[in-house]
C-alpha cells in the first residue's frame, strides 16, 4: 500500500456526472420569455403590497409573503449596480460555445425595476466599467424565448 506522501499519487477516479432534467419554469417565467420572444419587451411583476417590481418575475413576493400582481414593462435601459470582468473561459449555456475573454458581467437595475438582474456587459475592460454607468439591452434578431435573447448590455451615453 502506498503511503500518502508527495512522492506517490494515490488513485483518483474520474467521474462524469451526467443527469437529465426538465425544469418546470412555471407561468411567470413562461410569460417572461414568451413576451421577450414575441415583442422584445422585458417584463417585471409588481408586488401589490410593497409595490416593488421584481425581476425575474415570480409568483410570490418573499418580503410580503403575498402573491405578486400586475405585469410591468421595464428597461431596456438600466444602470450598472455591480460589475466584474471575467478572465476565465465560460461556455455560454445558450450557444454551447466559449465566450471570448475578457467579458463584462454585471448586475443591472433596469429602469422601472426594483431588482437588479445579472447579465453580460459588452464592455469587458474593467477600466471602462463603473458603478452607475448607463447601459441598454441588445436583443437578438431571431429570438427563441430564453435568456440568450438578450445578447448583452451595451454602454450608452445620455
Amino acid at each position: 500500500m502506498k503511503r500518502n506522501s508527495q512522492q506517490e499519487e494515490l488513485l483518483r477516479v474520474p467521474v462524469h456526472m451526467k443527469l437529465h432534467y426538465r425544469f418546470p419554469a412555471g407561468a411567470h417565467y413562461d410569460k417572461f420569455f414568451e413576451e421577450m420572444k414575441e415583442t422584445g419587451k422585458i417584463m417585471g411583476v409588481k408586488c401589490p403590497e410593497c409595490e416593488r417590481v421584481l425581476l425575474p418575475p415570480r409568483p410570490v413576493c418573499g418580503e410580503c409573503f403575498v402573491r405578486t400582481g400586475e405585469w410591468v414593462q421595464v428597461g431596456p435601459k438600466g444602470t450598472v449596480v455591480a460589475y466584474t470582468s471575467i478572465y476565465f473561459p465560460f461556455v455560454d449555456g445558450t450557444t454551447g460555445k466559449p465566450r471570448p475573454i475578457p467579458y463584462g458581467a454585471g448586475l443591472i437595475q433596469l429602469d422601472g425595476a426594483y431588482s437588479a438582474i445579472n447579465h453580460i456587459l459588452e464592455e469587458g475592460d474593467p477600466e471602462k466599467l463603473h458603478i452607475g454607468m448607463r447601459v441598454e439591452a441588445v436583443l437578438t434578431e431571431e429570438r427563441e424565448g430564453n435568456i440568450g435573447d438578450i445578447l448583452y448590455f451595451k454602454t450608452i451615453e445620455e
Binding site: 426538465r22 418546470p24 419554469a25 412555471g26 407561468a27 411567470h28 417565467y29 415570480r58 409568483p59 410570490v60 402573491r67
Partner: peptide, 12 residues
C-alpha cells in the same frame, strides 16, 4: 407531473 406550475408555486 406538476409541470403546470413552478416548484415555488407548489411550495407557497
Amino acid at each position: 407531473d406538476k409541470g403546470y406550475e413552478a416548484i415555488i408555486e407548489t411550495v407557497f
